[in-house]
Each structure stands twice: as C-alpha cells, then as structure tokens.
Design a protein around this nucleic acid. Sequence first.
DNA 1: AATTTACTTGAACGATCGTTCAGATATGTG
DNA 2: CACATATCTGAACGATCGTTCAAGTAAATT
Lengths: 194, 194
Amino acid sequence: MKYAQEDAVEKATILFWKKGFQGSGMRDIQQALDMRPGSIYARFQNKEGLFKLVVEQYVAHSKDKLQSVADSDTPLLSLREFFKTALINPDELRYMRQCLLVKSITELELIGDVGKKAVLEGMVLLNNCFANIIEKAIETRELQETTPVAFAADWLQNQFVGLRAFAILQTDNSAIEKMIEKVLYDLTKQWPTE
Amino acid sequence: MKYAQEDAVEKATILFWKKGFQGSGMRDIQQALDMRPGSIYARFQNKEGLFKLVVEQYVAHSKDKLQSVADSDTPLLSLREFFKTALINPDELRYMRQCLLVKSITELELIGDVGKKAVLEGMVLLNNCFANIIEKAIETRELQETTPVAFAADWLQNQFVGLRAFAILQTDNSAIEKMIEKVLYDLTKQWPTE
DNA sequence: AATTTACTTGAACGATCGTTCAGATATGTG
DNA sequence: CACATATCTGAACGATCGTTCAAGTAAATT
C-alpha cells in the first residue's frame, strides 16, 4: 500500500515533468496512475496535493544525488558526472533534461499556494546541497580556499538551470559536454572581487 | 489600423509573458485586447496565430536591443547595462525577468507546430545576435582574440537563461548584480582548451 | 442615397477541465 | 459467516476551454 503510493507519485512525476502542472489533466493523471478519480482524490486530496508530493519526492531524490556527490572523495569530479547524467540521456528521456522545479517556476502563478510553497522550498533545499558540495570541494583542495561558498552555490545552481534549458534544445551531446567543462573551469578559477 | 494591430500584439505579449500560452485563456485575451472573439479570430486566425505574432515581435524587439549593444563602441559595457535593465526592474514588471522564449520552451509540447517553430527560430536568431556582440567585443579588444565566438555565443545565451531564472526568484538586486559581474568576468578570462 | 465591402459583435457550440459522491467492492475483525 | 471498515469505481456536475457564425455596424465606392 505504501509502495503503491510511492509508485503512483513516481508515475505522476513523469507526467508533470513532461507536461507541467497545468498541462497535465486529471484524465491524463488517471490514465498514468491507472486510478479512478475518486481514488485519486481520496488519497491525494486534489491535483495540487498530488503535485506537492511529486515535488517533494523529486527534491528528496535530487538531494540524495547531490549529497552523494558531496560525500565523494572527489566531489568536483563527481559533480561533472552528475551533470553529464542529468543532461545527456536518450531521446525518450529528453524531458528529464529540464529541471522539474524550474519548469514549475515558470507556471508558479497558476499553481496554488501549497504547490508553490513546495517548489520554492525545494529550490532553497537544493541550494544548500550545492553549498555542501562546494565546501567539500574546498576541503579536498579541488577548489581554492578563497571560493565564496554561498555565492558560488547560487552560481552553480544557476549554471545548472541554464545548462538544462540549453540541453533540452541540443541534439549535439558534445556541445553539452563542452558547456559542462566551461562551468567546471569557471568554478575552479579565480572569482571576481567585490 | 496597422497601429492597432501592433498595439494588440503588445498587450497580448504582456499576458502570455505573465501567464504562458496555456495559462492565457481566450477570455483573458479578449479582455486584455478589448476585442470580441470574432474579431480576434478574424485578425489572428486563432490563439496560436496570435501567439506566433507575439513571439515574432518579442524576438524582433530583443534583436534590436542586442543589435544596439553590438553597435556600441564598448559592446561589453553595453552588455552589462543590457543585463541589468533586463533583470532588475520594479516588482510590477517582475514577470519580464523571465525570458518569454524560455518560458515558452517549457510548454513547447503543448503549443502547436506554428508557435513552436516561431519559438525555436527565435532562439536561433537571438543566438546570432549574441555571436555578433562577441565578435564586436573582440574587435574593440574588450575580449581576447582567442575567444571561441560560436561557443561563447551559446554560453552567453545560456548565462542569460540561467540569470533570468535566478532573477525571478530574487528579492535582492545586489545578488543579481554580483551574478552579472561573474558572467562578464568569466567571459573575459581564458576559456578552457578542448 | 444606394450598394458593396470590411470589420465587429456576442450568443452559443461541443470538448474538456477539476471535482464530487452514492454505490460497488475488497479487506479486516469478531 | 456476519458485520464493520476502508478503498475503489465511474457517471455526472458546473465551470471553463478554444472556436464558430449569423447578424449588426462602419467605411468605402458608385
């Protein structure tokens, strides 16, 4: 039963990821989850309640992945691999290149307060994960000690957002790889002084 | 009459920019343009036809602005100002921080082929504008001669996308300014070798 | 002034939207 | 086996969606 719930949320994630909140109709959801409307509403309250769970699971999952990057012996090398697997994937999984959170931000005004809150809190949480990675990379001397942690975390999250928008339009994987290299390059070099 | 058309498209732009293609209902559009459904359909064919004109006008407008950056004596300084005015604006114009094209990309699958084409062609066209700016900045010696033009254009467009997603969440303008400085810094410095 | 042409109007269409709820079915308990 | 409880079902609701079109109004032409 608890498994069925997580499984349902996972299926809903694919749908919302592909079509967005507004673009995913209840009938799409019913089909994707193989559940009838009554069951969905009994379990998830409403469409937004389901969306909230989707976002939370997505964030938790992303957090785990970023955490294991931070826990690596060479966080910066792991970060490169993380970028690659997130941004380069077969065509039928292309929708995953877009970040679900960023996609949701573009339709934030159309989502209710509950979903909105989940999205924004998710962004903050993942920002912390990026900060952890940078701190860890300073410890391992992969990054300079002078790297401004909080700012670099914002910057890194930013780069990820830009990269994902870039990757979704790209057919050429090597262009994406080059872009990843530039990000890591700029991360390791000197930062502008205030 | 021709003026009225451009004026109508401009009003539609604000709506689509705020609410997206899917999120803007025909009744919202009717209200924004102060036109009845029949007139709208007579003039623009359908919702997607209007959207296409909106995108084309948006791209043309953006192109002009980027062109005048390239035509400046100091393109890189102008670019900084361009970023600032695009990303920092009063709260009631916050919706403008998001790029209309990028916002449209996130709902590309829900827009018809006509609108889709306009969006993708717009991205390519603006990419060329970024390339022009970089070429011009090399001429003025603001950028190193070794700067890889096409790649830097992709990268710059990317940065712009990331910055806009960042700016829309940000309340602190100085954080945005710092991020702009980092972009310009990374642009002028050495690029990673292949 | 009469007639043609160009444009606007707004009620109405069928489709789809998110949501509800009375009844059917399955599961747990004594 | 009888009964209580939890879960699921699917027809149906009112609202809203994009769109159409016969009728009305304004402008241009003769």
